[in-house]
């Protein structure tokens, strides 16, 4: 199944659930920007941008991914250097203290980058840090399926 919305183009891998919406919070006070949520479990209707409402219900074999876009002011800023959406994550890069809110057994990975003049934060939570090698492979199956479409030039329809 293919999902195209807000400049995200995703060929949803089997067993994954994906939602693309507008962020509920905007730390920079700008216009609401898109966010992609993906999970290997049923995504709840009420979700925080960084997975609150999701990480509480995910099981040890589950993965939650949030890909948040930030406004123009963030593009190529110090926090969002030029880069690309990672296609795989080193299992050792997951940190139990990298969570927005500590959850027993879980760990997280976070990366800020600018790709195609769009600034993003990739935030990934795995359900069991001790299974990070296998779960990193699961994450890879989703990351490989995402294409970030470039920003349309001004005036383009």
């Amino acid at each position: 199944m293919r999902l195209e919305s807000e400049g995200f183009d995703v060929v949803v891998p089997p067993g994954w659930e994906v939602r693309v919406s507008r962020q509920t919070e905007n730390l920079h006070g700008g216009a609401s920007t898109p966010v992609l949520h993906a999970a290997t479990f049923a995504l709840p209707e009420e979700r925080g941008d960084y997975g609150s409402g999701c990480v509480e219900i995910m099981g040890p074999e589950d993965v939650f991914v949030s890909l948040l876009e930030f406004g123009d002011e963030a593009v190529h800023s110090a926090l969002f250097p030029p880069g690309e959406l990672p296609r795989s994550i080193d299992p050792q890069a997951f940190r139990t203290n990298g969570m927005q809110r500590w959850m027993p057994g879980q760990s997280a990975y976070q990366k800020f980058f600018t790709e195609g003049d769009r600034a993003f934060c990739l935030y990934v939570v795995i359900g069991d840090h001790s299974r990070r090698v296998a779960l990193a492979r699961t994450v890879r199956s989703l990351l490989l399926s995402i294409r970030l479409q470039p920003v349309a030039p001004p005036g383009a329809m």
């Binding site: 999902l3 919305s5 807000e6 995703v10 949803v12 089997p14 994954w16 994906v18 939602r19 919406s21």
Partner: peptide
């Protein structure tokens, strides 16, 4: 509410 959505049914746990 105009969100794009893909719900996993086949193969869900």
């Amino acid at each position: 509410t105009d969100e794009a959505i893909a719900v996993s049914i086949s193969g869900a746990r």
